[in-house]
Structure formats: structure tokens, C-alpha cells
Nucleic acid binder design. Structure first.
Lengths: 255, 255
DNA sequence: ACAACTCACTTCATTAGATGAAAGATAATC
DNA sequence: GATTATCTTTCATCTAATGAAGTGAGTTGT
């Protein structure tokens, strides 16, 4: 039997290998064998065997007795990007959006209670520290709110609950009531507009992306460095942003 | 025993799960269970159990009985990018390079006999179809030659052997002798300069990136659409490109 | 300089658990 | 409505994943 008593079929050793992989994903420094063993609570021999497989596939690389992710994961990302209808269709639309507004366009895909950056087209002026592909951010901050605003009630409340305790870049914590008002406004007006919530240096406008059935898929945003990107400038870009988000929302069978 | 008779330790079920994953990575369309089974030559029940694990981790998503990669792989890519010293250090250098030259900067990392795109900073004018992160290209074409030119003799010959039969975007096949001359020139002058080899619409200059010990890590390139990017324009960018590649080559302990 | 650690990696006997045959369920095709 | 093709679950068998124990290398402390 390979079931975990809960009906969901599984394979223990595969599960364990991915525990190791995710430990490496989370870490911001190469990890030694013992570190990995402690994190995933497995016998060194077991971890080592998993690592051997991962290494042979380029998913993990070893460097004098420490382990970290390898370029193999970039290949996987590529495999995703070229197959993902949303990302594919987004690219030309976003290039146009950036060409017209001069701002950076970003497409965040919703993944449970996070959003993950899948496509970015840089504008001018460029941000000093650009967010790399795959970055994940919460749904209660910045353009994430454009997603949240269009979620079913119960999920909205779940997001609001998660925001508890988050401190914005300004130093202020999130206020649940204030957040609810924000969401109301966003739902009414059809776009979010935030400045320096997660990063003081960034101002952004966001518009929800759905499938034709209306299910929320993610958010399209335009952003720029806050010193050079006034609210007025963002406001001006909103119609073009909404047009782009709408175009993107109409075109894919499902997902 | 879990060894594959060759000394290399392994875990069969993990190996199989990654066979499934790589089948999905290669495919340019979602795959059904039977398709996967045929490709990896495994029992449907086995494939299904692996898929269940992958799905729960967001690595794979199912959509009415077909499977494809999920956003989870983007998270992994992010995990790589934020840890990879080379990519990290490259970002600001490349932003500057693009700011000065106006061309798109790309960093390809060498991975056995391929190069994988790990960082890109888009220039102006932008290419219509931008290459996504994780794209892999051969070492005998375009800026890949800047890598090959600095490889040990035997590896160079291996690359040349692989080029056999490749037809360039122009319609002409690669000529081994011509390629050798190219490599000589690149080694002497310190940069590659190619137009429309892989894609007729792209012209690019490339300079090798090494670690301080001199081992080849990859190639830094500037590129633009060939109609708007004359050889002279590329030539003008070469000194700046070399400066950037050199700066990038000096700074990381090992790898 | 030697002892006492910590950590990386290997070997191998035990038995947990991955496997695949078979059957049931579901959907597509004629 | 029967037939075929594919998806999914169940379960007995026996492979192969596991972890205890051991080796060896490297580091720290006295």
C-alpha cells in the first residue's frame, strides 16, 4: 500500500525527495548534508540518495559538500512558460503595454494564497532591483489586492486573516478594516493603486485577469520607481492597463 | 539495495518521478496519462502516484485529464536565481550595460553542452519574441561560440562534432572548418559577433564569463533586432560588453 | 600531538512499502 | 446501447527503500 491513510495516493520516497528539494528552495544559502537532514528529519543516507538523483538531473548542484539548486530548475521553468497559455498570450500584450506607458509590466499568477511572478517586461526608468521570475508575494499587499477583491467572500476573508501582523514597508501594520475598504474600492473601480506597500521604492497599478468564465487567474500590473512615478502617471496608464488585462482575460479556454 | 550496479546511489521511485517530470518538461502540449505511460514506460498506477505527489506540490497541474508543469517550477527557478551568485551579481552589471548600449543583455550559463538563459535585461528597441528565462541553446551557434572558444581543446572538438547537421536560420548548414576559424577569431579578439544564425531577426555580440580561476561559466551578450542593429552598432558596444563580462568574471569564489 | 569531537559518505540485513495485475468506473466512439 | 479506450482504485507479492552501524576525513580543543 502506498496511500497515506487519507485517500490521496503517494510515494513516500518521492515525497521525501521533494521535501529535500523544497528545503533547498527555501534556503538562501547552500546547505550542508546535516542541515538538510535536520530540516527534513531524515536519515543522512536517505537524503544523500535523493540528492544523488537530483544532482544527476541538474536540479541540484554540489559544491564542496554543500548543496543548492542548479540550472536544471530554469529548464523546468522554461518548460512551464512555453506551455502556459496565459504567459504566452501575455507577452506581446505586455510588451505593448510597456511600450505605451513606459512602465514595467508584470503578470502575477495566483497560486493558492500567493501570487507568483511569471512574466515581466521592464519599462523605463528601470527599477534598481528588479523582481526575478518566480518571486511570490502575498495577496493582501500591492497589486495582490486586485486579485483578492475578485475572490469569493470566504477566500477574501481568508486573505484578510492572513494579513494579520504584516508590517508594510512604511512601517505601519495592515489594518483589516482599511484593507476591506481598499478591496471594495478596487472591486468598484476595477483597479488597484498602491505606493510603497511592500517596497517603499515601488508604485504600481493592478488589474485582475480572469478566464472567460470569470475565475480569477492573476493580476496584471504596471509599476515604476516611486520617485519617478506619480499617482497621476499611474492613473493615466490605468485605461491601457485595463484594456490589456481585459484582452488577456478573454482568450483562453480554461484553467 | 538501492544502487544501480554502477556505484551511483539512487532511489528508483524518485528516478521514475523525475522521468515523468522531464517528459512534461519536454512536451509542448499537455499530456494524458497514457501518453506519459508510453513515454516513460511505466504502469499507469505508478505514474498516477508520482503525479499525485507532483500535483500536491504545484510542480504539475492537471486539467481535465491532462497534465502539464505548474507554477511550482517558477518558485524553484526563483530559489535558484536568488542563490546563484553569478545571476545576482550579473543583474546590476547588465542593467548598466543595457542602459549604456540600449541593447538587450543576456546571461547564458553553461550547463554541460548547452547554455541556459538565466538573466535578461531588455533593451530598446525590443525584440518581438523575447527568449524566456531557462531557454537552452547549443554552444556552436551565436554567442555560444564565445563559450566554446574558451573551452579545453577536447571539449571544443566535441562541440564541433555536435554542430554536424545543424542548419542555420539562413538555411545554410554549419561548416566545421568555418566554425573552427570563427572560434580562433573569437579567442583572439575576445568576443563573438553573429547575425541571424539561430534566428534571422537577431544580431548579437558575446563575451565569455569565467570564474577567477579561468573556468568558463557562461557568456554575456548584447543583442537587438537585426534590422535596427548594424554590425557597427554592435561593434561600438563591444568595449562596454567586455568590461561588463570582465567585471562579472572576477568576483565569485568558485563554482 | 593526541583525543574528542562533527560531519560526509558507504555497506548491508531487515521489512516497510512500492509495485503492477486485475477489476471497477468513467468517458468517448460507433 | 454496445464497444472501445482511458482513468482510477484495490490488494497480495516481493522488490527495493531504509537506517543502524561503521569508515574515514576534517576540525577543534587541551
Amino acid at each position: 500500500m502506498a496511500d497515506e491513510s487519507s485517500g490521496q495516493p503517494t510515494v513516500r520516497s518521492v515525497e521525501r525527495a521533494f521535501d529535500v528539494l523544497e528545503a533547498l528552495e527555501r534556503s538562501d544559502a547552500p546547505l550542508r548534508l546535516v542541515d538538510l537532514c535536520r530540516q527534513v528529519d531524515l536519515h543522512p543516507a536517505t537524503v544523500l540518495r535523493s540528492l544523488a538523483v537530483l544532482q544527476r538531473r541538474g536540479i541540484v548542484v554540489a559544491e564542496n559538500q554543500t548543496y543548492r539548486l542548479g540550472v536544471g530548475v530554469l529548464r523546468l521553468a522554461h518548460g512551464f512558460l512555453v506551455n502556459d497559455q496565459l504567459s504566452q498570450q501575455a507577452r506581446p500584450i505586455m510588451q505593448r503595454l510597456t511600450a505605451v506607458t513606459g512602465l514595467t509590466s508584470s503578470l502575477y499568477v495566483r497560486s493558492s494564497f500567493e501570487r507568483v511572478l511569471s512574466v515581466r517586461v521592464d519599462g523605463n526608468p528601470q527599477l534598481h532591483y528588479q523582481v526575478p521570475i518566480g518571486s511570490w508575494l502575498p495577496l493582501y499587499i500591492g497589486s495582490g489586492k486586485a486579485i483578492t477583491a475578485h475572490l469569493p467572500e470566504d477566500e477574501q476573508e481568508a486573505v484578510i486573516a492572513m494579513s494579520e501582523g504584516y508590517v508594510m514597508a512604511s512601517g505601519k501594520p495592515i489594518d483589516a478594516e482599511h484593507l476591506r475598504q481598499d478591496l471594495d474600492r478596487i472591486r468598484k473601480e476595477g483597479y488597484s493603486l498602491t505606493t510603497g506597500e511592500r517596497n517603499v521604492a515601488v508604485a504600481a497599478a493592478g488589474a485582475v485577469v480572469t478566464n472567460p468564465a470569470g475565475d480569477v487567474l492573476g493580476v496584471l500590473s504596471v509599476s515604476g520607481p516611486s520617485e519617478h512615478t506619480s499617482d497621476e502617471r499611474l492613473q493615466q496608464s490605468v485605461p491601457e492597463l485595463q484594456r490589456a488585462a481585459h484582452a488577456l482575460s478573454g482568450r483562453h479556454p480554461y484553467s
